[in-house]
């Protein structure tokens, strides 16, 4: 196994031995377990508010599996993305500030491989945790509501994972050029910018921003053209990762 392969294994071990796996995994698992339960309890909560405020009338639909799925995707695309960016923002800058990068990069591991391994392993970790979370959501939804169709949860989840790959690449890029805190801030700015851009028609149709817009449509089974957002998101992920590697290779440590 070459140097890159050995570093890849180290990255996987590091996720398993440090806070990243429990924190990220814990967040996703918490969403998976609480989403369907929260969806089931929301009408009861609203009714209790209604009874305490005479004159206030809510039209409360009967909750179902789709509400649990909406909860899962909403959590994933908001808090999940937020936590993921914060964690990825320290992936390179943390090694630089602690000094571990010096021992690694004075050995025959290229800085390009260093960055690519970081992105690949972090994305792999997120995929594994989200897949597990989705399965748990589906199982709890089945228990709570008696039905849990596959496509309605997996389609938006897979689309979100494509978007997550871009967010990880962006956070890694920021981490390659700035300290952790600044990298987290810049990563979040990029995330909010993409979310806002999704409200503009052309950006939603032809750019990665369209993926966030597509999530709710997929949840409700509405037709949507995804080819452009998917292709541009994949291309942007590769381009941003390459930019991170290029900028990091020019940086003095």
């Amino acid at each position: 196994m070459g140097g890159a392969g050995r570093f890849l294994r180290k990255e996987v071990s590091e996720h398993l031995h440090t806070w990243r796996l429990p924190v990220l995994g814990g967040v996703f698992l918490f969403f998976a377990l609480t989403g369907p339960v929260l969806a089931m309890l929301t009408p009861a909560l609203l009714r209790s508010v209604q009874s305490s405020q005479p004159g206030l009338v809510f039209q409360i639909p009967v909750p179902g599996w789709r509400d649990a799925y909406v909860q899962w995707i909403k959590n994933l695309s908001q808090i999940g993305a937020f936590v993921m960016i914060l964690a990825a923002a320290g992936s390179v800058s943390g090694e630089v500030s602690k000094g571990t990068a010096v021992l690694v990069l004075t050995k025959p591991l290229s800085r390009f491989d260093f960055i690519v391994c970081k992105v690949v392993v972090f994305f792999g970790l997120v995929v594994a945790e989200v897949v597990l979370g989705t399965l748990v959501t589906q199982a709890v939804t089945l228990l709570v509501f008696g039905s849990a169709p596959w496509a309605a949860i997996w389609m938006p989840t897979i689309v979100w994972l494509v978007f997550a790959a871009l967010l990880i690449a962006i956070a890694t890029l920021m981490s390659s050029i700035a300290p952790t805190l600044a990298a987290a801030g810049l990563g979040l700015v990029a995330f909010f910018a993409l979310s806002i851009a999704a409200m503009w028609g052309p950006a939603a149709r032809f750019s990665p921003a369209g993926l966030t817009f597509a999530l709710s449509r997929l949840l409700f089974g509405q037709p949507i053209a995804l080819a452009w957002p998917l292709v541009t998101a994949a291309a942007a992920t590769l381009a941003v990762t390459a930019a991170a590697a290029l900028l990091f290779s020019r940086r003095e440590l």
């Binding site: 140097g3 071990s13 000094g99 010096v102 050995k107 025959p108």
Partner: peptide, 25 residues
């Protein structure tokens, strides 16, 4: 050897040397 060598705190010495050697192929 840098002036202040920094390591992955979760590793053990043997593991780190295996890792370092692995980077050399």
């Amino acid at each position: 050897l840098p002036d202040v060598p920094a390591f992955y705190p979760w590793m053990r010495a043997e593991g780190f040397l295996q890792f370092a050697g692995g980077l050399f192929g």
